[in-house]
Amino acid sequence: MRNQFAKSIFEISKKDKRVHVVVADISPAGKMKDFQKKFPKRFINTGVAEQSMIGMAAGLAMNKKKVFAYTISTFSLYRPFEMIRVDLCYQNLPVCVVGMGAGTIYANLGATHLTQEDISVARSIPNLNVVCPSDPYELDQAVRYFCKSSKGPMYLRIGKTGEPNYNFRETELWKFGKLRKIKKGKDLCFLSFGPIMKMVLSISRKLEAVNRSSEIYSCHTLKPFDNIRLKKIFNNFKNIVILEDHSHIGGLSSIVKQLAYENNYSGKIHSYSLKDEFLHSYSNQNDLLKKHGLDEIKIINQLKKI
């Protein structure tokens, strides 16, 4: 996704002179390096100074620039939190705060580099849209949407490397604020977002082998949320499965459960989210996810029993 982000920015910037990228000590590589070379004045590295990254992005946006403030997710959202709240959201400025390597991606670096509660934090700030692409295609669309249409701030939560595009015959196009059907099915409905969609697809394939067909939706826009489509899902499915690389507090499972209550949903919601704990586990992402209960084999076994 990191590469796709740079590629999208580079392509859009050729035509849209408003686009500026402010990074906090991210070394530009690939297309981002090309962007820096071609548009040196529109690439600003504030160094290890995230508060300045956001404040400066606000000032640029006041002068009608379309600004991406870009660094590792924990440093893009948590460190300069008050600047995001006041400078960007209170003033309602079009700045896209890009959190790269979100969730548990940087597992072995420890909790200083993890964002297991960022969506919860970001969703609670007025004016801030929250977008979490599931594949590089969605990321490209989100970046284009922001440059073309966004009048306020956005938190764009992205992965890092190795995410595939999902492209079945029935896969829908990306639209801001709308759920995107990835795959058709009838027994179960999966809701997810972000790079962990890869696990959802894998689980779905394995369930198909035992004749359980599943529909899959990418909930890429977590704020504003597509309540209308979710209502249709409530009507069509008795079992909804949520997988998210985020705490159970304030993320997708919170959103869906709240709406299920408000809509008198009588089916079952099976949610797999991160625990509300710092687990002090330092091997790879899969191991950490397993400790949080996101264990592919266990999930398959549980879902087989439905």
Partner: peptide, 28 residues
């Protein structure tokens, strides 16, 4: 409060104005 006549930035929490000024000054 930004948006009110003549007000260039919403302030009140100290330590915000200078970085915003940096963005304004850099781009013009």
């Amino acid at each position: 409060d930004y948006g009110n006549p003549g007000i260039e930035a919403s302030t009140g929490s100290l330590g915000h104005g200078l970085a915003i000024a940096a963005g304004l000054a850099y781009s013009d």
